[in-house]
Write a protein that binds this DNA or RNA. Structure first.
Lengths: 334, 334
DNA sequence: CGTGAGTCGTTCAACGTTGAACGAGAGGAC
DNA sequence: GTCCTCTCGTTCAACGTTGAACGACTCACG
């Protein structure tokens, strides 16, 4: 038994298909009495609109696409969860893609998700450069997340990475840290986030009159736990002996803390640690992890607003952040 | 400038739209020479098929829906990541929904995602009962994940929860544990998973000739870190003094370990801990967490196979698991 | 009483695609 | 020469929906 169409309902009530369409969408003029009869019929046959036909005719799909590097990373999972929740509240469906941080996948996605037409694309790029977006010939609205890609002509939403990184570093300074290591510099690939957070780190130290010790800036290949663990091993084996660590995201921080723990280095007694992203996991690690907490709900709401904004509002849109104070930075000074 | 259609390409080459369609889809008969000319034109105008029209005509959307309770939970995030990856490999797009574990949301999703027609729905139910699915009048293929809902007429894919829970408990027994607590029993709501894992726990103890101490079975409200932390506080305050803990998922285990750690109870020296799901986080916790590791890649591949299977293959399909041995169960006996 | 405005519903065409049915020509078999 | 088959491409209609345009009818106003 095929799915009932507008015509089926219309025949049942004895009106035109268009009138049923009007009832369904609340458009046009229909008397209350007729509207009610139609609504009864709609329920009786269990009518559900055909999304394809609706989209073909109206041009709108009611779907937006989200593309993140890896959904398995807690930050992106929490971001996706937040976005899906916000979208569901607006009767929008979210379609999820993974880019693995590969530039060509990111470009392909910015050009439209294969054959699937969506009303907008929210892309959290990792490797994409401004040039990749110049040649874009797809007209689907695009909003970028979390990165400032050159002089992009697309709207993008991000936390002020430099200010947040500076605040995190200042928090370490405020509890008495003086030799602060930074984990997360990226030498390969144009990872804007890493650059901006590094800038914030430098700014805080300079402002405090502390010379930057370049050996305390540790590069990583990626932003995973394993990379943080590796960086911490470098810290230990090189005998750098920092009294504070600012990791550019929570996974790096957690990986580092794991290494420190197995090496019997105490956190925060021997070295304080602060991360970035404030993922839920940090509230249950041992010790609990201090972190920069971006206002994710605001971020996703802004992203959707911008995506649907008419006319488009290009430029950078910044959302707020707070510093979550937890056990990993309850320093000797406190 | 509107998106180019088949007709635009056809006019350019001087053939019919249908022929271009044939080239795009590899259907029908086209000479190599003409095919090449069409393909050149396709690239020149940057043709991309209109998904809505294609779906309207063919009935297929190339999309499947995944519905999980919460995407922010690492297990579901990793599951979603795995599914999206597998689907992308098959040229399928995944659309993600969150149910918050609410029965009526789950039912609504099983009835089709709002207006959006998808080729299939993969649902990981929490509160749904068999009865909820009986009255289903949507014909979209449905595959259930991770739960055995009564005598369901739908295919479902799951790890053998009872066998896996039994294996986890036996692992604790094998390292010398004799007073093993279980965290994760659910008194409210028909959480099949909790029941099955509890059954496995009981079976392992009985088989080992150890009487089940009901006070060691701790109920939880949910499967989050906070619930595990709370259960561990109960263990401590009630003076239960177990020498092993089997938590019904990793989050419960991590929450419990956090509580134990702050109470200076050593893991695994004082009490060994094993979880379930083998989320990545467990490899970096302090100590690292032993866990039941379901074969997720196999799970999602099977789910998609079943979803697209013609004819449908109802019944339970089981995937394998292994026990990941880590520091949290390096017991005194070893 | 004519004109305009508001109300209620209809018909028509089109969105872009593809299955079905139908030529038209070339070649081979009888 | 006729019939059949195979190749290559066309035309036609339809998927279910909704914007635009259009009647018909009622009411108020000058």
């Amino acid at each position: 038994m095929a799915r009932p169409t507008l015509k089926d309902v219309a025949d049942r009530v004895g009106v035109s298909a268009k009138t049923v369409s009007n009832v369904v969408n609340g458009t046009g003029w229909v008397t209350d009495e007729l509207r009610e009869r139609v609504q009864v019929a709609l329920l009786e046959v269990g009518y559900r609109p055909n999304a394809a036909a609706r989209q073909l005719r109206s041009g709108r799909s009611g779907m937006i696409a989200l593309a993140v590097p890896e959904l398995s990373q807690p930050y992106f999972a929490e971001l996706a969860a937040s976005l899906v929740r916000e979208a569901q509240g607006r009767m929008i469906t979210v379609l999820v893609n993974q880019t693995d941080g590969l530039a060509d996948v990111e470009r392909k996605i910015s050009e439209g998700i294969g054959a699937t037409a969506v009303d907008g694309i929210i892309l959290s790029p990792l490797a994409l450069s401004a040039g990749d977006l110049e040649g874009r010939r797809d007209s689907t609205p695009l909003v970028l997340l979390g990165e400032h890609i050159g002089t992009s002509t697309f709207p993008h939403v991000t936390v002020d990475n430099t200010a947040a990184a500076k605040a995190a570093t200042q928090h370490l300074l405020s509890i008495g840290c003086r030799r602060i290591a930074a984990i997360g510099a990226q030498e390969h690939g144009p990872n804007e986030t890493a650059l901006l957070r590094l800038a914030g780190y430098r700014a805080a130290l300079e402002e405090a009159g502390i010379p930057v010790d370049e050996s305390l800036i540790l590069p990583v290949d990626g932003f995973h736990r394993a990379d943080g663990a590796r960086a911490a091993r470098t810290i230990l084996s090189a005998g750098l002996e920092p009294d504070g660590i600012f990791a550019f995201n929570d996974l790096l921080a957690l990986g580092a803390m794991h290494t420190l723990s197995t090496a019997n280095v105490r956190v925060p007694d021997d070295v304080a640690v602060i991360g970035f992203d404030d993922i839920e996991e940090g509230q249950y690690s041992t010790p609990t992890l201090s972190s920069v907490s971006p206002h994710t709900a605001e971020l996703v709401a802004t992203a959707i607003d911008l995506l649907l904004a008419q006319p488009p509002a290009p430029g950078m849109h910044t959302v707020g952040f707070t510093i979550a104070h937890r056990a990993s930075t309850k320093g000797p000074a406190q």
